[in-house]
């Protein structure tokens, strides 16, 4: 199992796990902002291009639709990304999460939690997730982000908010543990392809930098070991 170590990387630490649900230690060494000239000439392949910030995943999650009950009336809004409304007091209407949260902050609506955000349903999912070895389908491709966003900004509209928070965190933890195990076997068996159905973007994102960089490093080492192969040369500056 992974060892939690205070920032120091020991040889067998596969994933440094922090208590925070999102930042699973893989974003520590972000190299964004390195002056162009130094990184062009440095020997390592700068991974900065291939990364995504958790906040950007959250940005994508904010496009998901959620039901709100407005307390104002407004005609249809013709946004570039589609039409919204019309808004009538007391009548539920679908809007993207970013708008729902904004209206909520201005106290202009009540948010109806998505169907899956329900203690019983989540308990079922948690049990299934613990029982199965593979990843089970999640209720929403952005379940973690949506839970976080809605519970942080509209917890008064969500019944049993604390229980839901714990349940979702449990599901997340179980899945991340599975992800670590499968990443471990992927590396030790030197696989070249893996199928990752049912994994969400945020989950992929927590391991992305570390996993991809490790794979690249190992590939470099391996291709230099095999004599006669010129695969490694391109990387050997």
């Amino acid at each position: 199992m992974p060892i939690v170590h205070n920032g120091a990387v020991t040889s067998c630490v596969f994933f440094a796990v922090s208590g925070n649900s999102y930042s699973a230690g893989t974003f520590i060494s972000s190299t964004v902002g390195v002056p162009a000239l130094t990184h062009s000439f440095c020997k390592q392949n700068n991974p900065a291009v291939q990364t995504m910030d958790p906040s950007e995943v959250e940005f994508l999650a904010e496009k998901e639709m959620v039901k709100i009950i407005p307390n104002f009336s407004l005609d249809k809004i013709y946004l570039i990304g589609g039409d919204l409304g019309p808004f009538n007091p007391g009548l539920p209407v679908d809007v993207p999460v970013w708008l729902a949260l904004n209206l909520k902050q201005r106290q202009k609506c009540r948010i109806v939690p998505p169907e899956w955000m329900d203690v019983e349903k989540l308990e079922e999912i948690r049990e299934l997730e613990r029982k199965e070895d593979a990843f089970t389908p999640v209720p929403s491709p952005y379940y973690m982000e949506l839970t976080k966003l809605l519970l942080n900004h509209a917890s008064d509209n969500i019944p049993k908010a604390d229980e839901i928070r714990t349940l979702v965190k449990d599901i997340w933890d179980t899945r991340i543990a599975k992800l670590r195990l499968s990443a471990d076997s992927f590396i030790s068996q030197q696989e070249a392809h893996a199928k990752l159905d049912n994994l969400t973007l945020m989950e992929i994102n927590t391991t992305r930098t570390f996993l991809l960089d490790s794979l690249n490093c190992m590939y470099k080492l391996r291709s230099n070991l095999q004599p006669g192969s010129n695969k490694g040369k391109a990387l050997d500056y």
Binding site: N45, E191, A192, H193, L215, Y219, R222, A234, L235
Partner: peptide
């Protein structure tokens, strides 16, 4: 200046079904 490393691994989602994609051994 280093070349882009095309051998990097990437995560992807399939939008149109593709058959018989050759996976090279590690």
């Amino acid at each position: 200046v280093p070349e882009p490393c095309l051998d990097s691994f990437v995560f992807l989602r399939v939008k149109e079904r593709q058959d018989n994609i050759l996976v090279e051994p590690e």
